[in-house]
């Protein structure tokens, strides 16, 4: 279940990345690499487990499946958190920088105005 959820996340992220390629500065590539990398590694895990359990692998206990689903969703959440933090740190649109360095309104001194 974890593998399935991660593969779906990888495919969705890659499709969004492809659709916005060249236009988006949202650093979606990091999500694609993470989810595809994890999918490949969990695939190996699944193959070794299948070699050990054979057909039993496809009939997991309900409790195990629920735990795996919960894990898969948590993995996707962690990936999204890593991605959003990386976007905020890179700050491609300068939004965070603009928020932190707000322009200060400097009051015009009356004496200076009178002198002019």
């Amino acid at each position: 279940m974890t593998l399935l959820i991660t593969v779906f996340a990888a495919v969705i992220c890659t499709a969004i990345w492809y659709k916005n390629a060249g236009k988006s500065e949202m650093n979606l590539g990091i999500l694609c690499w993470m989810f595809w990398g994890a999918s490949a590694m969990w695939l190996v895990d699944a193959l070794f487990e299948y070699a050990e359990l054979k057909a039993e692998y496809f009939a997991p206990a309900a409790e195990n499946m629920l735990n795996d689903t919960f894990l898969g969703l948590s993995v996707v959440a962690l990936g999204l958190v890593i991605w959003i933090v990386s976007v905020l740190i890179k700050d491609p649109k300068g939004v965070v920088r603009a928020k932190l360095l707000k322009k200060k309104d400097v009051p015009v001194k009356e004496d200076a105005v009178k002198a002019e």
Partner: peptide, 13 residues
Amino acid sequence: WLQLGGCVLLAFE
């Protein structure tokens, strides 16, 4: 990136 990204999520598992 492929390997490090995958390893981060596997470490979480």
